[in-house]
């Protein structure tokens, strides 16, 4: 509960589905809508204390170019480009970035017809690798529905698992 008390003074900013927010240093707590099989990605620059949070729903924008235009954050490929561009706009150096990932919940699916969570995770890892970025800490897959939080004051990344009362720390830089 200590963590919760500390966050009370911070401005809280919801990052909805298919949304991303990048902010300069400040007293801000970013948090996602529950991720489901989507991916939450947090980036944080411990030097400038700028950071961002992103909630992608699907792997690839090629299925709907019109929607990718309107909501680039909906897809992993267009969303990652947008996230890094926004960070660059704030003069955040890519080599400073700590990257965290969560989400990609999976049902028990022997058919493979409903494997959106697994597919999302694979694609994210590949896209990050292409950018020379690696995931610092992750909580991905499994049966949980997660919400991701990034506290810009400290760079702490927390997870709230649906059905569980307390938040859990994913990483404390």
């Amino acid at each position: 509960m200590v963590a919760q008390e500390r966050t009370e003074a911070a401005e809280q900013c919801l990052v909805g589905i298919a949304d991303l927010v990048v902010r300069p240093a400040g007293s801000v707590l970013l948090y996602t809508h529950p991720l489901g099989s989507g991916m939450g990605v947090a980036i944080y620059d411990p030097v400038s204390k700028a950071g961002g949070l992103w909630h992608a729903m699907l792997p690839d924008s090629s299925i709907d170019a019109r929607r990718a235009q309107a909501h680039p954050a909906m897809f992993l490929n267009t969303g990652l480009a947008e996230l890094l561009k926004r960070a660059d706009d704030l003069d955040v150096k890519k080599e400073n970035l700590l990257v965290y990932a969560a989400g990609g919940g999976r049902i028990m699916d022997a058919t493979g017809y409903f494997n959106i969570g697994a597919h999302n995770h694979e694609v994210l890892v590949e896209l990050l690798a292409r950018q020379g970025l690696k995931v610092w800490a992750a909580d991905v897959g499994g049966l949980a529905n997660r919400t991701m939080q990034l506290d810009l004051r400290t760079g702490e990344v927390r997870l709230k698992i649906s059905g569980q009362p307390k938040t859990r720390i994913l990483c404390k830089p």
Binding site: I17, H33, P34, L35, G36, S37, G38, M57, G105, R106, I107, M108, F114, I116, G117, G142, L143, A144, N145, S162, G163, Q164
Partner: peptide, 13 residues
């Protein structure tokens, strides 16, 4: 569920 509107313990079971 896929969109995150699935709640509770072990939402993806």
């Amino acid at each position: 569920h896929f969109m995150g509107y699935g709640y509770g313990h072990l939402a993806f079971a």
